[in-house]
Simulated scan of single mutants.
Amino acid sequence: MPWFVKIERGIVNKAIFDQHVPAHMAYVKDLVAKGHQARSGYWAERGGGMLLFQAESLEDAEAIVAADPLIANHCVEYELHQWCIVVE
């Protein structure tokens, strides 16, 4: 399966953002359980982060991202890219 990366930047204050973090973490764990090999984290300087995952196609990746509670609750702006690995 191809790899995809969602690069995000927070657009709400931390208190609002933090309300949706538990649901986001459960969402990522569900992606892992479904075989998407998802990994999620934030930048050390805060204010943004990244979700790396596998999906069958760009369309599937877009649907996966749309289901992220951070997206659904308008907490972040994001870019979605297919990531082409050259060295494993």
Rank of each mutant, 00 (worst) to 15 (best):
M1Y: 06
M1G: 08
P2N: 08
P2L: 04
W3V: 08
W3D: 12
F4P: 01
F4V: 00
V5W: 02
K6L: 15
I7W: 01
E8L: 11
R9I: 12
G10A: 14
G10S: 12
I11N: 02
N13S: 02
K14W: 07
A15L: 10
A15D: 15
I16E: 15
I16F: 06
F17Y: 15
F17K: 15
Q19I: 03
H20K: 03
P22Y: 13
P22A: 01
A23N: 08
A23H: 09
H24R: 13
H24K: 09
M25K: 13
M25G: 11
M25S: 10
A26K: 13
A26F: 01
K29Q: 10
K29Y: 02
L31P: 05
L31E: 04
V32L: 07
A33W: 02
K34M: 01
G35Q: 11
G35H: 09
H36L: 05
H36T: 01
Q37A: 03
Q37R: 04
Q37G: 03
Q37M: 00
A38I: 06
A38Q: 12
R39G: 12
R39Q: 14
S40P: 02
G41P: 02
G41F: 09
Y42S: 11
A44K: 07
A44V: 12
E45Q: 11
R46H: 07
G47R: 02
G47Q: 01
G47K: 01
G47L: 02
G49W: 12
G49S: 09
M50V: 15
M50A: 15
L51Q: 00
L51A: 01
L52A: 05
F53G: 13
A55Y: 03
A55M: 05
E56P: 01
S57T: 04
S57I: 04
E59A: 15
E59R: 10
D60N: 05
D60I: 12
A61L: 08
A61N: 09
A61G: 08
A61M: 03
A61R: 12
A63D: 14
A63R: 15
I64P: 05
I64A: 06
V65P: 03
V65C: 06
A66L: 14
A66D: 06
A66E: 15
D68I: 11
D68M: 14
P69S: 10
P69H: 09
L70K: 07
L70Y: 10
L70C: 09
L70T: 10
L70H: 10
I71F: 07
A72Y: 00
A72C: 02
N73P: 00
H74D: 08
C75S: 11
C75T: 01
C75G: 12
V76H: 01
E77C: 00
E77H: 06
E77W: 02
Y78E: 07
Y78D: 04
Y78H: 10
Y78S: 11
E79V: 08
L80R: 03
H81I: 01
Q82G: 03
Q82K: 14
W83P: 04
W83V: 07
W83D: 00
I85E: 07
V86D: 09
E88M: 05
E88P: 05
